[in-house]
Design a protein around this nucleic acid. Structure first.
Length: 287
DNA sequence: TTCTTTGTTCCGGA
DNA sequence: GTCCGGAACAAAGA
């Protein structure tokens, strides 16, 4: 569920607390994540100092002197911060109040500042990979990615150029990470709703005006979501266990059979599947 | 037992 | 060669 805004919030909240901290130990409870954690994993990271944490699309990158640790949270991955001294107290609040179960704590990164980063993931679709001496844009997972939505180059001309020879529907285009990277199902649904564009419209048939509105809305919705603390389908919390609250602002996602929230409309929200992904749209105002 | 959920990769047909 | 949709994959809860 975490999409760009959620990852950005995790990045910011982690960075505040663990920048310049050194990894003193690592405990792996379950190495079977999306990709199996190799034996050398702990050895390669212990003693390394976190020099930066950056984000590309939905990936987090921990920067060390020569190494980079790439992480993707998959569907339900969480990076929790744990204060050693008040261990018990935080455990309670993380694990029970927020329905985070300790049996899904898979990796512990112990730091020299009395904090521990815990990777918790119910479905284990997330992953960690270490890269040595490599530029960011050469990392295999990152080099195929399209523009970041906030990139100034993500504009009308880029869109028109990209769809010139393409015929897919606009929903699948926005889900395509080689076109624009960081959007997932939820924000694509929302952006199309706000832009009054039907998800099945062919991407090369959008009018100039519609493209401009859509791009502007994508940027706006991501920015708003970050400022509100990230989306919070209940699986998502930020690194300090604080739940995001963007969920209450969803206008179309998971609103099947509800009335359209647009004042002037009041059409019915429909649910369809597009490439096996649930898609919600207003049958009246999304043309 | 089956369905649904996600992002990503892989594959075959067009 | 390129585009595009579908399948597979990971795990678990309903």
């Amino acid at each position: 569920m975490p999409e760009l805004p959620e990852i950005e919030i995790v990045r910011r909240s982690l960075f505040k607390m663990v920048n310049k901290a050194k990894i003193t130990n690592i405990k792996i409870n379950n190495k079977n994540l999306r990709y199996k954690i190799p034996h050398r994993f702990s050895k390669q990271l212990i003693g390394e100092k976190i020099l930066d944490i950056s984000r590309r699309s939905k990936y987090l990158i921990f920067h060390f002197k020569k190494k980079k640790l790439l992480s993707h949270l998959g569907m339900s991955g969480k990076l929790l911060l744990f204060k050693e001294k008040s261990n018990t107290l935080l455990r309670t609040s993380f694990y029970y109040d927020l329905n985070i179960l300790p049996q899904h704590n898979h990796i512990y990164f112990f730091l020299n500042n009395n904090l521990t980063i815990i990777y918790n993931d119910v479905r284990r679709f997330g992953f960690f990979k270490i890269f040595n001496n490599i530029e960011l844009n050469q990392i295999p997972f990152l080099k195929k990615l399209g523009l970041e939505p906030f990139n100034k180059k993500f504009h009308l001309e880029y869109f028109k150029n990209f769809v010139k020879s393409r015929k897919k529907n606009i929903k699948n285009l926005l889900m395509d990470q080689t076109f624009v990277s960081g959007l997932g199902n939820i924000y694509v649904n929302e952006a199309l709703f706000i832009s009054k564009i039907h998800p099945l419209r062919k991407c090369n048939n959008l009018k100039k005006k519609e493209i401009i509105i859509l791009i502007s809305n994508i940027k706006k919705i991501l920015r708003d979501s970050i400022s509100k603390g990230g989306s919070s389908i209940k699986d998502f919390i930020n690194s300090r266990g604080k739940s995001g609250n963007f969920q209450q602002y969803f206008r179309v996602y998971d609103k099947e059979n509800k009335n359209c929230s647009r004042n002037s409309c009041r059409g019915l929200i429909k649910k369809i599947w597009i490439s096996k992904r649930s898609s919600f749209y207003c049958s009246n105002c999304q043309k």
